[in-house]
Write a protein that binds this DNA or RNA. Structure first.
Length: 493
RNA sequence: CGGGAUGUAGUUCAGUCCGGUUAGAAUGCCUGGUUUGGGACCAGGAGGUCGUUGGUUCGAAUCCAGCCAUCCCGACCA
């Protein structure tokens, strides 16, 4: 047992860390709050990125790249946005080091090299982008602008956690400009739907789409749409957001266009993003005490093929050849597989290792089974072992991977649905949060004060006002004031 | 940022309270051999400025202070 994993029951946080570190996704770095994403983790991110990027392009967007640094004067232009992020900004004040005259071999910041104006390391790129859009937009003919960028951003968080909240993280941010309010709102809704579709169909993770309450809204937005997913400990994880920015940024950066009637009008804006945090969601939603469980559609490797090796060199070579042959056949229909023919490790070791890494399907090719025209397969999601005939092996594997994908989604969905409760009194609300963590649908009087009070008392926040919410008369769980609909409460990451 | 804890071999940890030859173990790594259908075994070997900087001392992994990093609990978290 070389790599022991803390169980979920023992310590959920440690379990999560163990999976990230021992599963080979990421590692701590020499920089506070910043992690190294290792090749296995980065391949996972690339697979997620590729699917999303294709969806963005299918919905008419193009990629561009804007600078890492934002001059402070631009950053402060949209007041609410600036205020919201001010506390977590890294700031560049100097542009040069020099050798320290007092300490040989050491460098110091050169006081002569102080910048006239400080540069903010972007926590998000609205400011630099809207400053650019001002130059791009004169006429209604220049609209819409549908641009996305894949980038890193820095938010100096107090307390960081691998993937879930790192000081630097990777994400994409879409920034669009529209002639009309309706068009911008339609874009905002379209993109939250793109995210929901991706997370549900590729990450096998059901989400609840909704709108944020005023206090949870993105700084500078009129409306924030969100997708909320449930983790295995019942806590919520905001997995993607799409913001209707109204004309806030257009006004702050004076971005106007001439309409057909030759009238000057402010542009309407949206922004939307998902980040490497999604990997955290993936881990916490699906994995178990034996390691990661990664859904086939985005798994770095969908299949691991392990040939049985023996002293009999001819037999060993034949098994390795069969394994490579299968890998090549799988590649023809786009299935990513890995052959492990390392002679120095025994099968049992490999089984445990690939279970830890969460590869969806394991295939063992051995002389005993092969004589009977079968191979042994083991599913990571259910741990079921069975035999598969070599006759239609490629198409059978493809079908099985789809089945695993579906099963992971179904399992996550039934877990989530089992842990959403409608509650009508505050005592039950509090009790439930402590005893059976999950989502709670409850009435709320719609005021930020009540929301804040509930947060103080229970640590639960309003995750969203679900989009498909049925209207229903009721009384606010805390104040008893009238309410027209239930909202989604949970403790969150 | 407040409270608590930790940092010693690639990894996990013992040793620190009570300072004193050459800093240990397991695991991993390397070599050779025997093995191989669920984390193999035997033999030999390599590997550590004890997180870092400074202080106390004849002498520091051990005592003191600063800094850095990590974990847990809060605060914070578009």
């Amino acid at each position: 047992m070389s790599k022991e994993i803390t169980s979920r029951a023992e310590n959920y946080s440690e379990w999560y860390n163990d999976l990230v570190l021992k599963g080979g996704l990421a590692d701590y770095s020499a920089v506070r709050g910043c992690m190294v994403i290792k090749p296995y983790g980065f391949t996972l991110w690339e697979n997620m990125r590729d699917v999303l990027d294709k969806k963005f392009k299918e919905t008419g967007h193009v990629n561009a790249y804007f600078p890492l640094f934002v001059p402070k004067s631009l950053f402060e232009a949209e007041e609410k946005n600036a205020e919201g992020f001010a506390k977590e900004c890294a700031v560049v004040t100097h542009y040069r080091l020099k050798t320290n005259p007092d300490e040989a071999g050491k460098l110091m910041v050169d006081p002569e090299a102080k910048l006239e104006e400080e540069l903010v390391v972007r926590p998000t790129s609205e400011a630099i982008i809207w400053n650019t859009y001002k130059k791009w937009i004169q006429s209604y003919r220049d609209l819409p602008i549908l641009v996305n960028q894949w980038a890193n951003v820095v938010r100096w968080e107090m307390r960081t956690r691998l993937f879930l909240r790192t000081a630097e993280f990777l994400w994409q941010e879409g920034h669009t400009a529209h002639a009309t309010k309706q068009e911008a709102i339609a874009e905002t809704v379209q993109m939250i739907n793109v995210y929901a579709d991706f997370v549900e169909n590729y990450m096998a993770l059901p989400v609840i789409k909704g709108v944020k309450s005023e206090s949870e809204r993105f700084a500078g937005a009129e409306d924030t749409y969100t997708i909320e997913a449930m983790m295995q400990d019942g806590k919520a994880l905001q997995s993607g957001t799409s913001h209707f920015l109204g004309q806030n940024f257009a006004k702050a950066f004076e971005v106007t266009y001439k309409n057909k009637e030759n009238e000057e009008e402010y542009v309407w804006a949206t922004s939307w993003g998902v980040s490497t945090r999604l990997i955290g969601a993936l881990i916490m939603a699906h994995s178990d005490d034996d390691g990661l469980v990664i859904p086939p559609r985005i798994a770095p490797y969908q299949v691991v093929i392990i040939p049985f090796l023996s002293k009999n060199e001819a037999e060993t070579n034949s098994m390795i050849a069969k394994a490579n042959e299968l890998k090549a056949d799988l590649a023809k229909i786009g299935i990513r597989s890995l052959v492990d023919s390392d002679e120095t490790k025994r099968p049992g070791f490999k089984f445990a290792e690939y279970e830890l890494k969460g590869i969806p399907l394991r295939i063992v090719i051995g002389p005993r089974d092969l004589a009977n025209g079968v191979v042994e397969i083991a599913r990571r999601d259910t741990k079921e072992k069975s035999q598969l005939s070599v006759t239609n092996i490629v198409s059978d594997i493809a079908a099985l991977l789809e089945k695993i994908q579906q099963n992971m989604y179904d399992k996550a969905k039934s877990f989530r649905d089992d842990n959403i409760t409608k509650v009508d009194d505050f005592e039950t609300f509090q009790k439930l949060l402590d005893e059976k963590p999950g989502f709670i649908l409850a009435h709320w009087d719609g005021t930020p004060e009540t929301e804040e009070k509930i947060k103080e008392l229970t640590k639960a926040t309003i995750r969203c006002i679900p989009l498909d919410n049925p209207l229903e008369d009721g009384k606010c769980i805390l104040t008893g004031n009238p309410s027209k609909q239930r909202v989604l409460f949970a403790r969150a990451y």
